[in-house]
């Protein structure tokens, strides 16, 4: 009489519901990545600035990101800010704030690393060819920085995508939550849970894996 629990996935609109849940986290990830690129650039330049206060500020920011689990930061913003400042932030906005806070610092640090890794003689030999300072940036420095940066930045974006799964813990109805709802509805189908979680696992893999492969390819090509 037993039908495999895998059939649950194809009952009604269950699969679409899972994808809808996944889209919730992907949307958070995409907004986060977009904001992190903008702020990360500023952060990276700030880290390289001559202003000591600005550098110390960045350092502190980076250390907080390094030491605090993202889940703790999510709790602080989602539950803590409501208490402290009376801000009633939705789960999704809290997530965007926290992940952008994190992504900005990490990407900024990558940008700083990429910029400082270009040896001084690259600039010097370009100048020796008589290039203007704008041309040096355009043809020598920026292309090399981008080549160092891009693979690492792409890897960071897969980490951001993976980490958005955490929004389940602050009551956002994302793919895991939808999965639990489906499992709850089909409690007569005991192995439904196995297949639902397995599917979610695969879905994440299918999103992140190609991106990782791309990063690996670029890294090899530009190494």
């Amino acid at each position: 009489m037993q039908v495999s629990g895998i059939s649950v996935l194809f009952k009604g609109i269950n699969f679409q519901r899972l994808l809808g849940g996944l889209w919730v986290t992907m949307r958070i990830a995409l907004i986060t990545i977009g904001l992190s690129v903008v702020f990360g650039l500023l952060f990276g330049l700030l880290m390289l600035s001559k202003n000591k206060v600005a550098r110390a500020f960045c350092r502190l920011w980076l250390e907080i990101v390094r030491f605090m689990p993202q889940l703790v930061l999510l709790y602080v913003v989602y539950f803590g800010f409501a208490r402290l400042f009376g801000w009633d932030l939705s789960g999704e906005s809290s997530a965007v704030i926290v992940f952008t806070f994190w992504g900005t610092a990490e990407l900024g640090d990558l940008i700083r690393g990429a910029l400082t890794s270009i040896p001084a003689h690259q600039r010097e030999s370009a100048a020796a060819l008589g290039l203007t300072s704008r041309q040096i940036y355009r043809y020598i420095l920026i292309p090399q920085t981008v080549r160092r940066l891009l693979p690492q930045a792409i890897n960071l974006s897969t980490r951001i995508i993976k980490t958005t799964a955490l929004v389940k813990m602050i009551n956002v109805t994302e793919v895991l939550k939808v999965g639990q709802q489906i499992i709850g509805q089909f409690y007569r189908q005991p192995d439904a849970a196995f297949w639902v979680y397995f599917t979610i696992f695969l879905l994440y893999f299918l999103i992140c894996w190609p991106i990782s492969l791309l990063a690996g390819k670029l890294e090899k090509r530009w190494a």
Partner: peptide
């Protein structure tokens, strides 16, 4: 392992 979230791994 590198391309899936730990949270999902734990649920599974």
């Amino acid at each position: 392992a590198r391309n899936t979230p730990l949270l999902v791994q734990l649920f599974f």
